[in-house]
């Protein structure tokens, strides 16, 4: 365990070199939030009105928080590194150390997004407070539970994206699959809450990873209830186990296919 904590610490030290890159990423983040702020203000002609159970304030906070999760936890560098390492055979030089490669990459990923997520969270909370005021109905007592749910959400997202990268053991390029995954997450889980979609689509979205990665955790922040918490927690446990087993299974099968040419 100690070695993985050290890997986490080392990755944070390494990622501190990229602070300026993270800050430059704020431009797109703020722009998207600004567009949705104006869009929802236009749609909500009466600020007191509720649309599908959401007030204007809740809707804006929903977008800000899902955007924060999306921007703060996405890690293209690690994801493409896994694919590239497999394709180029460079994975061979990483797996010959006394750690489990998959856990090593999970911890590195967490280390890389830790600082980024914290910075985006600070920026998101500040922007939200300036533009629409504090989060309605938010009770700080729930913070530990929300942190737990957010960590699980990040892990599930990690496991799924890493599983997609591991497909490179069998296919030439996993990038199109990443593209599809990210776009589905963006459209169905980030820009609009599930309640905004047609009734027939809602059960599908609620049973998809979107529910446990973006919608569920954010719903808990903007209107916490014991029922939603239990439902999200249960779904997260299932997804955590399922995605972890998928990831490990793919690795165990794929690692035997390592083909290192050259040298």
């Amino acid at each position: 365990m100690k070695k993985y904590i050290f890997i986490f610490k080392t990755t944070i030290m390494d990622s501190l070199q990229y602070i300026m890159n993270i800050i430059l990423g704020f431009v797109t983040y703020i722009l998207i939030i600004f567009i949705f702020l104006n869009l929802w203000q236009y749609i909500y002609t009466d600020p007191e009105k509720l649309i599908n159970g959401y007030s204007l304030q809740q809707m804006i906070w929903y977008v800000i928080l899902t955007e924060t999760i999306w921007f703060g936890t996405r890690n293209g560098a690690i994801i493409s590194q896994i694919s590239n390492d497999i394709k180029s055979g460079a994975i061979a030089y990483v797996i010959n150390k006394p750690y489990h490669y998959v856990i090593y990459m999970i911890v590195r990923n967490l280390g890389e997004i830790a600082i980024k997520f914290f910075l985006y969270l600070c920026a998101g909370l500040t922007l939200g407070y300036i533009w629409v005021g504090r989060i309605p109905e938010f009770n700080p007592i729930y913070i530990p539970l929300i942190i737990m749910i957010l960590i699980s959400a990040t892990l599930i997202n990690n496991f799924l994206t890493m599983s997609i990268s591991l497909l490179s053991f069998w296919i030439e390029d996993a990038a199109p699959f990443h593209w599809i995954y990210v776009k589905i997450l963006l459209i169905l889980g980030i820009l609009f809450p599930v309640e905004m979609f047609p009734v027939w689509a809602q059960p599908i979205i609620r049973s998809s990873p979107i529910y446990v990665i973006t919608y569920g955790p954010v719903k808990l922040i903007i209107s916490f209830s014991r029922e939603i918490f239990t439902s999200v927690l249960l779904a997260q446990v299932i997804y955590l186990l399922g995605s972890f087993l998928l990831l490990m299974g793919l690795y165990q099968k794929g690692v035997k296919k390592i083909n290192v040419n050259g040298g």
């Binding site: 061979a92 797996i95 010959n96 035997k256 390592i258 290192v260 050259g262 040298g263």
Partner: peptide, 12 residues
Amino acid sequence: STTIKMLTGILY
């Protein structure tokens, strides 16, 4: 290199 990688357990 293939031999080295088998000796170090990288390749089967």
